[in-house]
Simulated scan of single mutants.
Amino acid sequence: MTEGNFVDYVKVHLSSGNGGKGSTHLRREKYVAKGGPDGGDGGRGGHIILRGNKNLWTLLSFKFKRHFKAGHGEHGAKQRSTGADGEDIYLDVPLGTVVRDSETNEVLFEITEDGEEKIVVEGGLGGRGNWHFKTSTNQTPRYAQPGIPGQEKDVTLELKVLADVGLVGFPNAGKSTLLSAVTAAKPKIADYPFTTLKPNLGIVQYREFKSFVIADIPGIIEGAAEGKGLGHYFLRHIERNSSLLFMIPADAKDIVEEYEILLNELRKYNPELLDKERIVAISKSDLLDEELRSEMKEELDAYFKETDYLFISSVAQTGLQELKDRLWKQLND
């Protein structure tokens, strides 16, 4: 999937159908004098319904069409015939889609299961026909209820990527290079920051035909939790990952400091993210000689006492199998 086809944030305008009006028909048949009211009820207006679809990975279907309108209910008829309900509109979305009211920013609901259906905008109710209003003192009511108008609503659809492992790191930490090395994904790779602007997904083939999904998420910068840089556009994707793989390049000025900044941004955005299992990968380790690696290992051993870490190089293809083994173990413990 190309970067331009990965759509994870759209605003759509939804309109439900109007309810049909009730009938004011009076029964008129040969040999039946003053048959009385027999006007039927109006039909319900169509709903706008979101439906979870496990085969979708993006909100691409909403890229070029963002206005949806359900059908109107038909009017009631004679012989107490109820009008047909308006046609419902079903919009399929990928699992992990969060639905917000665009005006208030309130979260309405989330779609997390395949086939799950949620009504976003309800259709208007049909009006009742005149036979409902017949009384002992009013045998021939000549009025009925009008249908209730449909509703209009602007909603925002946000996709939180569902993946087993999420890559977390600063721009140019080597996340996309790792993804291309361990999966068949072909993310854009270049030697400048913010090459990745949209999440990329890849399937890691493991031993004995097993596999897990890894997500390359756009790079974090300091202040991202306040919306700086790509801010919340990528932080929300981390919430859906089972495990986090922190990537820090071996040529960073201070590995521990970078790690602390990354942790702090996650903490400010959502403290629960720190409860996830995590592994730290020191990328671009092919730049280190044995002496420098030994010195760095002594320092990191003292700091990462409870956090698992390892040296890897996507270019030199070193440490990648060990990384897969540790991720698989962590995901299945």
Score class of each variant (00 low, 15 high):
8 D>R: 03
8 D>L: 05
12 V>G: 00
13 H>K: 15
15 S>P: 15
15 S>Y: 15
20 G>R: 03
23 S>E: 04
24 T>Q: 12
29 E>S: 11
33 A>N: 15
33 A>Y: 14
37 P>C: 02
38 D>N: 01
39 G>E: 03
40 G>H: 00
41 D>R: 07
41 D>F: 00
41 D>N: 11
43 G>P: 14
49 I>W: 04
49 I>R: 04
54 K>H: 11
59 L>I: 09
59 L>N: 08
62 F>E: 13
67 H>Q: 13
67 H>R: 10
68 F>G: 09
68 F>A: 13
69 K>F: 12
72 H>I: 14
73 G>Q: 02
75 H>K: 09
77 A>Y: 12
78 K>L: 10
80 R>N: 08
85 D>G: 00
89 I>G: 05
89 I>A: 12
90 Y>I: 14
93 V>D: 03
99 V>I: 11
101 D>M: 05
101 D>E: 04
102 S>P: 03
103 E>P: 14
103 E>A: 14
108 L>D: 00
111 I>T: 02
111 I>P: 05
115 G>Y: 04
116 E>S: 05
119 I>S: 06
120 V>W: 02
122 E>K: 07
123 G>V: 03
125 L>K: 12
127 G>M: 01
129 G>V: 00
130 N>M: 09
131 W>P: 09
132 H>Y: 15
139 Q>T: 12
140 T>Y: 09
141 P>Q: 03
143 Y>I: 08
145 Q>G: 08
148 I>H: 11
150 G>K: 02
151 Q>T: 09
153 K>V: 01
154 D>Y: 09
157 L>E: 11
167 L>Q: 15
169 G>E: 10
175 K>S: 07
182 V>L: 14
182 V>Q: 02
188 K>G: 06
189 I>Q: 07
194 F>L: 08
197 L>W: 05
203 I>N: 10
204 V>H: 02
206 Y>I: 07
206 Y>N: 10
210 K>G: 10
212 F>Q: 02
213 V>T: 10
220 I>C: 07
221 I>K: 03
222 E>N: 06
223 G>M: 06
225 A>N: 02
227 G>I: 00
230 L>N: 10
234 F>A: 13
236 R>W: 12
236 R>V: 14
237 H>G: 02
239 E>F: 11
239 E>A: 15
241 N>S: 14
241 N>H: 13
252 A>C: 11
252 A>L: 01
253 K>F: 02
253 K>Y: 04
260 E>Y: 05
264 N>L: 08
267 R>G: 09
271 P>Y: 06
272 E>I: 06
272 E>C: 11
274 L>S: 13
274 L>F: 13
275 D>N: 13
276 K>D: 14
282 I>S: 01
285 S>M: 00
288 L>E: 03
289 D>F: 06
289 D>K: 06
293 R>Q: 12
302 A>W: 01
309 Y>I: 01
311 F>S: 01
320 L>C: 05
321 Q>D: 15
322 E>I: 01
324 K>Q: 07
326 R>V: 04
328 W>R: 07
330 Q>N: 14
